[in-house]
Design a protein around this nucleic acid. Structure first.
Lengths: 249, 249
DNA sequence: GAGTATCAGATTGTATACGTTATCAATTAA
DNA sequence: TTAATTGATAACGTATACAATCTGATACTC
């Protein structure tokens, strides 16, 4: 049973994994924690709605691991604000408040434009190629109506730019804010289409390719403002909330 | 054995604790995890040096809890970058690289001045009074030669300002960066005295009291630049590192 | 004598058992 | 009929047992 995991971390893989966990700023063992990776991806792709209950036993059974592994995974997700852990009440997918939603986007608007500026100054051929490939993947996901996958890839695009900026500490913070944005969009998004992303992202890549720092910074700023303005905090999707959840705030 | 903890979270305390954990942005149960609180404080006060081994059994025995509790505490500390967890090798106090040290201070220089500006606009009588009280505590700690305590309080001062700014998401990020700064200072600090803090902090309080946003922002910026410039990344305290630790990078 | 293989001791990783707490439906009293 | 209480069930919190892994010392080979 354990063998399954040790296989994954065979010697020739270990460097890649260590690198991956380093970039992502999480503990190495989380990379091979199926609960962590699986639930995170499901949240980023909006397959798990905000407020969804995450019973330990169910997750343990689904992923074929003991509750110990489930708990470590859920705790890690809780530190990323993707999951809420309440004592003796267990875990549920986080349900960011309008305030938290606003704050997350404010923080992104503060950090990401500067990150894009730095990325534009550093971006090389390989970086631009990787970004174009990624944009193509985003495009394909949209075309195939895989909106969840498209959203996750769209977030990943922002993380890639932060990584090109070569400031890991800030990149890690941005990655966390971007992840939380998936939940925020699930709750407060008003428009049906995310078509704007495609144009914005391509324009951003162009600016990076030209090493136009000022343009990249401004494009990122306006892109985020546009995203932010497409959120409506007054309505809020309360469909999957119980009265107790609301009173619990 | 369990009673010890349930006592702590008696009904009349629960609100305070919940509030505390909310402000600090960590899971509620961590507040009453003696390993988390104890090791965190020891690191912030530089009683635990970077690289120090943290054996699970030793901690379990010291705090009188099972290894389960020790592990959850260590995992939480690892998420805050105060502790490093390596598979099958256990935990040790984090040993931030020169690069990480530089990045942490760059991030602080980006976030904290804006936070101070916002705090100056919002600061009320109660805020100023709390800050002055805190500055007095800092002063007393310095006077009594409790440099560890002084350092921890000095960090806490920065967190308090971030909290006054009323942007929890960013305040939480700043709190994390400030915590890591204790380790960075332990490794790369060159000057013997931290006397500058006292003047800087008092000037900052004065600016907040006058609601002088521009002045507060500039004071915070220069304060951080001064701190940053007092770090020497080329030397590095390698006294408590083994060859393996170095090669492990 | 240097380097490698091996094995005991210690430490971490995982699973599971058990006690405690929450949830919810059934029952009872007003 | 409604509200409160109670008890069964399910879930979480903690401790512990056992397996896997690492470390360091000893023995062995070249």
């Amino acid at each position: 049973m354990r063998k399954l995991y040790t296989n994954v971390s065979s010697p020739n893989m270990s460097i890649t994994q260590q690198e991956a966990s380093f970039i992502r700023g999480l503990q190495a063992d989380m990379v091979q924690n199926p609960v962590y990776t699986g639930v995170e991806r499901a949240i980023l792709e909006q397959r798990l709605p905000p407020g969804m209950r995450l019973a330990e036993t169910d997750l343990a059974e689904f992923y074929g691991v003991s509750r110990t592994i489930v708990r470590t995974g859920l705790q890690a997700l809780a530190h990323s604000h993707l999951v809420t852990l309440r004592p003796n009440r267990g875990a549920s997918v986080a349900n960011p408040s309008p305030r938290e939603a606003r704050e997350v986007f404010e923080a992104r608007e503060l950090l990401e434009p500067r990150s894009a500026r730095e990325a534009a100054m550093r971006a090389g051929r390989a970086d631009v190629r990787a970004l174009r490939l990624h944009a193509q993947e985003e495009h394909d996901a949209m075309r195939d109506n895989e909106s969840g996958r498209a959203l996750r890839l769209s977030g990943r695009f922002h993380v890639m730019i932060a990584q090109i900026a070569n400031q890991r500490t800030i990149a890690e913070i941005i990655e966390n804010l971007v992840s939380r944005s998936s939940l925020i969009i699930a709750l407060y998004w008003t428009r049906s289409s995310t078509r704007c992303d495609e144009g914005c992202h391509n324009a951003l890549i162009d600016a990076l390719e030209r090493n136009d720092a000022t343009e990249a910074e401004e494009l990122m700023r306006s892109h985020l403002v546009e995203l932010h303005s497409a959120l409506r905090f007054d309505v809020g999707d309360t469909s999957n909330l119980t009265l107790k959840d609301m009173l619990g705030d």
